[in-house]
Design a protein around this nucleic acid. Structure first.
Lengths: 347, 347
DNA sequence: ACCATTGATGTAAGCGCTTACATAGATCGC
DNA sequence: GCGATCTATGTAAGCGCTTACATCAATGGT
């Protein structure tokens, strides 16, 4: 007399271990063992239980087992946004590495909002994540304090400062942009512009700008205020920034861009204004996205292996979870790809 | 006499509700109520409990509460890969929409492998997801059977067939490419090439190809085998495909590409071969990624709002979870953006 | 033949939380 | 002022699972 479709039976509720146990005529403990320590169960019984479970569509429910086992097999990834392929690649690689070990990835995007990041981490801790990967280290101190209080392994990704208090997997953003600037300086440029993402609350970007400044300072140079454009990264921002800079006097002979999209915009606009690149203006990018090598001229940029960062971060965390205390990993070194958008200034 | 740092105390174990209850001198039920039905607790006590919990760094542990409440507040997203910005955008939008309602997103990438997808869905069901979003409907039947057996709401995204048995949020891939082909036919093209992603196990792509074929057939035309290139999407595949096609006799006067990256490659190669676009060759893309409008000439393509797909999928699932049975949503309609890469064939 | 092992299975005590129900003051109408 | 009614809090029974420990049968050494 159920109100449900009689064909589906009166109890649409999910089967539990005890149901499988009854159906297979064993105890609930045996059912559990079949799934967790199969070698402790006689083959005949094991097969019977497996068959029954399959027939009933039963699998151990994670919440129950997490509670009993005191392990959730969940780890969290906290990134700014998936709209940036750089982070998407990292997460994709982590997800893959974890999935291979039966670990589930919880994802959260804080949209460059520090309060949101703290909130997200709290939520993940409440969910019992066993480890955490977090992009960047420019976070509110209570974010890290909360993690440390739980004695949970964590790693900061996409950045690597030599003297960071956190375990980190990434590269030295300052060093990377120091290299880019040096490349340009070595070519003979002295008036260099910078188009870069917002530095507020973003340690990676701030470090990049700092790297450029340091390289220039070493040769007694600096960035003129009118040659520094900071804003949301987009092709359009790259375009408008270059347009503005070239209207100054003297105009820069080279511009360093915070990523390839900005550089792409800069390149398009420079050409639209009738400049030849690199003779009239040298341009550098960062990330080495797929189109960069296809541009005309192909973009000089720095290549970062984001999948590798994700994979390493996952490996590090997995090692920690298994109890080892892995040595600090050396930073990745992004490589400068000299293509067609940099040359000596036309004098 | 603990072996641990005496400052951290002998019990580094996470506090539980009962500890908070004891410290605040109330019962464990009251602690729970403070977090779940705060209005049922006297303000003075509520504040005391809140303060104690905060001081002890306690939050209700999700596994325990999921068990007791029989709700996990988790939903799963199953996508092919995060390396495609199209899916990354969808996931990002879903994550945002869910986070706003206190729901956590579990992510899994099946890498276009049907067995992997089934496995991932199983794992998610075991984790007690309350709803599931899955890209595409070309999956093993037991994937959907497994979900339906659990009476869990789900939605297929990125595709929308009028006669699909599944609730779906997306657009009609067949229809979309029918439109593209018609656009070209209307311009007078009769020899049309196609460069497309692998169709095997990918219903969306297969539908696209089908749409092109149908549009051509309506005018008594077809795709010549030598004018159909199917392979992993990349700029390079676009380039090599165009090169191969243009070596045939007669060469196509237009090529339809499965996405903007392929189209970008096609455009670059056509120009490298000395053809002018669109006079010598018309090219269409799909997705309308950021660079497309910046190309020279700007790419004619179709714009799809992937964030919108993600948002709608999340809204639909949330509605289901709250018990309503939302009406089937109308498909999104991608819009054809006629820019500079299509024109009448040069006769 | 008998006892000590061994190995397979069952019993039952939680894991940390929520919530129906019980309880006990406080409040109010008459 | 007394019982009826409410409201704030506590008690205890699970949620579905794992696992230490108990049990029991079979094995093997002497």
């Amino acid at each position: 007399m159920s109100e449900r479709d009689p064909k589906t039976g009166p109890a649409p509720r999910a089967p539990r271990a005890v149901d499988v146990a009854a159906a297979a005529d064993v105890s609930i403990a045996t059912v559990s063992r079949v799934f967790n320590n199969p070698e402790k169960v006689a083959p005949a019984i094991r097969e019977r239980v497996l068959a029954t479970a399959k027939a009933m569509g039963w699998m151990p429910h994670a919440a129950g087992s997490a509670l009993a086992r005191r392990r959730t097999s969940i780890v969290g990834a906290v990134i700014p946004t998936l709209d940036n392929e750089v982070f998407a690649a990292q997460v994709g690689a982590m997800q893959k590495a974890f999935a291979e070990r039966g670990i589930t990835l919880l994802l959260s995007c804080f949209n460059y909002d520090q309060d949101q990041a703290v909130h997200d981490v709290q939520a993940m801790l409440a969910r019992g994540v066993e480890a955490l990967a977090i992009v960047g280290e420019a976070h509110r101190p209570d974010l890290f304090a909360g993690i440390q209080a739980r004695h949970i392994p964590y790693v900061v990704t996409y950045s690597h400062r030599p003297d960071s208090p956190h375990p980190c997997i990434g590269f030295d953003n300052r060093q990377a942009f120091h290299s880019i600037a040096s490349h340009l300086l070595d070519l003979g440029h002295e008036t260099i512009g910078v188009i870069i993402q917002p530095t507020a609350g973003n340690d990676r970007v701030a470090a990049r700008l700092d790297g450029v400044r340091a390289a220039l300072a070493e040769r007694g140079l600096g960035i003129r205020p009118q040659h520094l454009c900071e804003g949301e990264w987009s092709i359009d921002f790259g375009r408008q920034s270059v347009r503005a800079m070239l209207a100054t006097d003297p105009p820069p002979t080279a511009v360093i861009c915070g990523n390839d999209y900005l550089a792409l915009g800069a390149l398009l606009e420079a050409r639209a204004m009738g400049l030849t690149v690199p003779q009239g203006l040298s341009i550098t990018g960062f990330d080495d996205i797929a189109i960069s090598r296809q541009l005309d001229p192909p973009l000089t940029t720095m290549h970062v292996d984001n999948h590798e960062i994700g994979r390493r971060a996952a490996d590090y965390l997995l090692a920690c979870m298994e109890g080892s205390r892995p040595a600090a990993m050396p930073p990745l070194v992004p490589t400068l790809i000299r293509r067609g958008t940099t040359a000596a200034p036309h004098t």
